[in-house]
Design a binder for these strands. Structure first.
Ligand SMILES: [Mn+2]
Ligand SMILES: [Mn+2]
Ligand SMILES: [Zn+2]
Ligand SMILES: [Zn+2]
Lengths: 128, 128
DNA sequence: TGACATATTGCGAATTATTCGCAATAATGT
DNA sequence: ACATTATTGCGAATAATTCGCAATATGTCA
């Protein structure tokens, strides 16, 4: 939850928005959500804070190839991945044991693994 | 290799470029590569063809969160994943057994898995 | 081989996501 | 309350990707 140095209104609103929406959300979705609550935070500020939250490890960046980034709070639910429905864009959390996977990569290529993202693409029940 | 209905100059050039560069490349990189060969294909046409190649399963879209998409030919090398160096942007192919992973996801959530992308982030030898 | 039908290209403009510069403002320590 | 300065709002700037449309190239068939 360490974002910047000051606990501002914008940060409270952004954090609360992501928490309440409870799924990987885009900057624009955060903006819209806040507005629904008759409050407002400039889009540029939302981007700046998401950047900070990412650097301070408060959020994960999730990519589905939509041409934009999505963000999700890191705490609460542990490490997990997602199912993205190519039909409707619905997103589902999935958990799985993956120690083997990770170990297979450690040290290979001489890389130091900082993190990894695993995304699955398919069709949800409604879209099949 | 089935892209569109006609085997055009643009398609030959784009395909060859991706093949020769032999790594996940962006639309702009394809454009630049073709230009080096004293030939040219409009960027819009490159985007249109990458879209087609993706739909016809000739290329994979690979995302590293750089704010743009990368494409890689599907044939030749089998299914594999990548290591992306956050320091220099270097990309390495990696292979691994993952039958377990996939099986864990099949049927869960009632989703039909179409494909998945697994990306690792870290630092390559030069950047550590 | 040459003309036709139309898939595809080039080009410029439009979109969308994200970033920047900077002056105004709000958060924190004294 | 005051000063310091991190942060915001705003408008403009970028960067990636998409569109509309007239010009062109490709595959087909007479
Ligand atoms: Mn999630
Ligand atoms: Mn590869
Ligand atoms: Zn769906
Ligand atoms: Zn590197």
């Amino acid at each position: 939850m360490k974002i910047g140095k000051r606990y501002t209104q914008a940060r409270k609103r952004i954090f609360t928005a992501i928490e309440k929406m409870d799924k990987p959300v885009s900057a624009q979705e955060i903006y819209d959500y806040i507005k629904q609550n008759y409050e407002e935070v400039d889009l540029a500020s939302i981007y700046r804070n998401l950047e900070l939250m990412n650097k301070s490890d408060a959020v994960n960046v999730i990519l589905f190839g939509e041409g934009k980034k999505r963000y999700e709070l890191k705490n609460k639910k542990g490490h997990h991945h997602h199912l993205f429905c190519e039909g409707c864009g619905d997103i589902k959390d999935i958990k799985m044991k993956e120690e083997n996977l990770i170990n297979n990569v450690k040290d290979s290529q001489g890389f130091v693994i900082k993190k990894h993202n695993l995304e699955f693409f398919g069709l949800c029940p409604n879209c099949q």
